[in-house]
């Protein structure tokens, strides 16, 4: 028998399958998220006015400056740029703009945007294998904690506009306290319609206080559902967060008093909950992968948020989110879903 050796010319490139891709990539995901959030931004400017636009533009401008600077630096040093398109920075900037309270000074918005982009996106990505903490939530939490500390010792106007000291006096547990605190959401006259809104209507449709992104809870809800379905967000987190908040709100209303519908409107439709649930709590890197862990994440996030909200902690939902982000590596270990072939004994079913 004669044996001859294989002589392959290596004419073709070799590689593992598959050889086709869905054609939808990270940049498109970010860009579409940005475009959808722009609808919320538009509604916010309509409701809250030009000030909301300034916050959003300042946040976007700041992240783009940081991104541009870092991108040039990385190219100059011959390092592969972290972002091959401005889509992800734009989303970060938009989130910062929309998660700021309308009363916050513009400087605070710029600082939060800077921290988000530089520290919690670029640096966190550089020094860790992925982003464990939601960049915008952590930046805002860190800054708010710092300002809260400042406010304890110094009578600072900036700190006061962020920290809202009068919140400390609110009693959101009792029926009277809760209903009394809701005055801030009622009485607005909606342009064109010329009608005055009740507190419940205000919280659903036309909110001129609080987070810019929550100006119209209904718009966030609709855009959020479209985004979650279209872009396949981690919908279990949204569902469990909002579902738990609703149950807690109704339960509190029934047991402790306060119109349950108004409680749902307040506890679910303020920007710090509804915007956070759709666009921050689903941030992929800092949230769990297993489906059941996502439910645990959402339920825990809602409980923490509710408790902090009831006890008047300003920025409570973001502290809750950061805490849950920290619990994510642990939640990732809980792979409860049984794969095919493990679910039924002896193949019955």
């Amino acid at each position: 028998m004669s044996e001859k050796e294989d002589e392959t010319s290596g004419l073709y490139k070799v590689g593992d399958p598959p050889h086709i891709h869905i054609g939808f990539d990270k940049n498109q995901l970010m860009l579409k998220t940005f475009l959808l959030m722009s609808i919320i931004a538009y509604a916010s400017v309509m409701v809250m006015g030009i000030q909301a636009l300034f916050h959003i533009l300042i946040a976007l401008g700041t992240v783009l400056i940081v991104h541009g600077t870092m991108d040039s630096y990385q190219k100059w040093r011959g390092i592969k740029p972290t972002y091959d398109s401005p889509a992800s920075p734009l989303v970060a900037g938009m989130i910062v703009g929309l998660c700021m309270p309308i009363a916050a000074p513009y400087l605070v918005t710029a600082v939060v945007a800077f921290l988000t982009m530089f520290v919690f996106k670029y640096m966190q990505g550089k020094y860790f294998d992925h982003k464990y903490l939601n960049p915008a939530a952590t930046s805002k939490s860190v800054l708010f904690l710092a300002l809260a500390g400042v406010f304890r010792f110094v009578d600072s106007e900036i700190a006061a506009r962020v920290y809202h000291p009068h919140h400390q006096e609110l009693d959101l547990l009792s029926a009277e306290g809760f209903e009394g605190a809701m005055w801030i959401f009622r009485g607005e006259t909606v342009p064109l319609l010329g009608a005055e809104v009740s507190a419940t209507q205000g919280l659903f449709f036309w909110q001129t206080h609080g987070w810019i992104g929550g100006a119209s809870g209904v718009v966030v809800l609709i855009v959020g559902i479209v985004a979650a379905y279209w872009l396949r967000y981690k919908w279990r987190i949204i569902l469990s967060t909002l579902g738990t908040m609703t149950i807690l709100a109704v339960g509190t209303g029934l047991y402790l008093g306060g119109d349950p519908l108004l409680r749902v409107a307040f506890h679910v439709f303020t920007g710090s909950v509804i915007f956070m649930a759709f666009f921050m709590a689903t941030e992929p890197q800092s949230t769990p992968m297993p489906e059941n862990s996502q439910y645990i994440f959402g339920i825990s996030l809602a409980i923490l948020t509710f408790v902090l909200q009831i006890y008047n902690v300003v920025g409570g939902s973001l502290y809750a989110l950061v805490i849950m982000n920290m619990a994510t590596p642990l939640l990732d270990m809980i792979v409860i879903k049984s794969p095919y072939g493990h679910r039924e004994s002896k193949g019955g079913g």
Binding site: S9, Y12, G15, D16, P17, H19
Partner: peptide, 14 residues
């Protein structure tokens, strides 16, 4: 690719 576009291994040579 020897096989389908999803699962076929590639070959270096015709």
């Amino acid at each position: 690719a020897l096989g389908s576009i999803m699962m076929g291994p590639t070959i270096p040579d015709p």
